[in-house]
Design a protein around this nucleic acid. Structure first.
Lengths: 114, 114
DNA sequence: CTTTCATTTCGGAAATGAACGAAATGTAAT
DNA sequence: ATTACATTTCGTTCATTTCCGAAATGAAAG
């Protein structure tokens, strides 16, 4: 598939936009994202794969978790430009604001094992 | 559907990105767009409806044609921001460059009736 | 080495999207 | 008015996407 189209496709889903806005606040593991989105873990994992494949995020293994980070250093100018689109205040309202509040509260140690 | 998601969905199709880049050069009627994309007229009409519904374009009836224009004045900041994404040079290569050449050559009078 | 547990992959169901041709619409020309 | 014709709408088909639960993976802890 055309690379530019792939970028827009990755962003054309509410759950994935929410994930990107959450990762803007801080890196999160799959179980934390799952908790906030309230979707099956496998579904969250697939959304993350789509975002990673498009270059918006990357993951780092940390202890028993896979922690996802916003890929702010991506050299692709279109990706950078799209990150800037997500800075619009439209993405700080409604569900995005609610998610932001939850991101500050969730704790992977409490959510998952420990 | 969420408004922001609708914007990205509208852009997550190669034919629709091509249409927007063509309209950047000049306003076009459906038959001119159909000629360049080489799709059924009904398919082109649906793509145009999706872009219009998202606010990226508008149409004006002119004689027997419906002429589509880029909606550069759209007040939505996200739309403006997305127009800026499309300014990236990635959208002036490959198929987009070929389309641009064709836009300068097509003539609705020759294509359609007259 | 075996168990535990977070995550990914797989397979399938339901929803959505893209494409076409045929029929409907509406306007311009005869 | 009737015809001609650009465009839209409708109905259908096929591909893709989204979602889930079950099974596989892989690393850490016991």
């Amino acid at each position: 598939m055309d690379n530019q189209v792939k970028l827009f496709k990755a962003l054309s889903d509410q759950s994935r936009l929410r994930i990107l806005k959450m990762l803007e606040i801080r890196a999160l593991c799959v179980c934390e994202i799952r908790e906030i989105l309230d979707l099956a873990t496998s579904t969250v994992s697939q959304h993350l794969a789509i975002l990673r494949n498009a270059g918006f995020i990357y993951d780092i293994k940390d202890a028993k978790w896979v922690v996802y980070h916003l890929n702010r250093q991506n050299a692709d100018e279109v990706v950078q430009s799209l990150f800037r689109v997500l800075q619009d205040k439209a993405f700080s309202k409604g569900i995005y604001r609610e998610d932001a509040a939850q991101v500050r509260e969730v704790n992977r140690n409490k959510l998952c094992g420990l």
